[in-house]
C-alpha cells in the first residue's frame, strides 16, 4: 500500500509549501493528504492511517497539541510519526510536546532541505 503523508496547517500557503518541498516523493509513490484544521486532521488520521503527519500547533478549533495527544495517547496510534510545527519566536513547551507524544518538533520558517530529509528518513526512502 502506498505510504501517506498528512499535512495539517490552517494556512494554505504553508500546506502548499510543504507539499511542494516534498514533491519528489510523489514520484516514489508517496501520497499527500491535507487538512486545514485539527478536527479534519483527526478524522483523516483515523481513516487514512498516514505514516507521517506534519502538524501545526497553532490552529483554531482543535490545536496540534490536542490532536497529537488524542492520536498518540487516546487512540494508541503509535505508528503514526508526528512532526509538530511551531512558528519561530513562539514559545514552545518541549516538555508538553513530549507529554502529548510528538516524535519531533520543527520551527517555521522551516528549512526545506531539513523537512525533505526528515520525511525520507521516516518513510525509510533513500
Amino acid at each position: 500500500m502506498a505510504q501517506k503523508i498528512l499535512i495539517v496547517d490552517d494556512e494554505a500557503h504553508i500546506r502548499m509549501l510543504i507539499e511542494q518541498t516534498l514533491e519528489e516523493l510523489e514520484d516514489e509513490g508517496v501520497e499527500f493528504i491535507t487538512a486545514d484544521n485539527g478536527e479534519k486532521a483527526l478524522h483523516l488520521i483515523q481513516s487514512e492511517k498516514p505514516n507521517l503527519v506534519f502538524l501545526d500547533v497553532m490552529m483554531p478549533k482543535m490545536n496540534g497539541m490536542e490532536v497529537c495527544h488524542k492520536v498518540k495517547r487516546e487512540l494508541g496510534l503509535e505508528g503514526v510519526f508526528i512532526i509538530l510545527l511551531t512558528a519561530k519566536g513562539q514559545e514552545f513547551d518541549r516538555q508538553k510536546g513530549q507529554e502529548v507524544g510528538a516524535d519531533v518538533y520543527m520551527t517555521k520558517p522551516f528549512d526545506p532541505e531539513m523537512i525533505l530529509e526528515k520525511a525520507r528518513q521516516v518513510l525509510a526512502l533513500s
Binding site: M16, L17, E19, Q20, E23, K88, P109, D111, P112
Partner: peptide
C-alpha cells in the same frame, strides 16, 4: 499550480535564508 508552488517555495527559501 505546480509552477506557482515552485515559485512560492523559492521565495520561501530566500525568506528562510534572510531569516537565518
Amino acid at each position: 499550480k505546480k509552477k506557482l508552488g515552485a515559485e512560492v517555495l523559492s521565495l520561501y527559501q530566500e525568506l528562510n535564508v534572510i531569516y537565518n
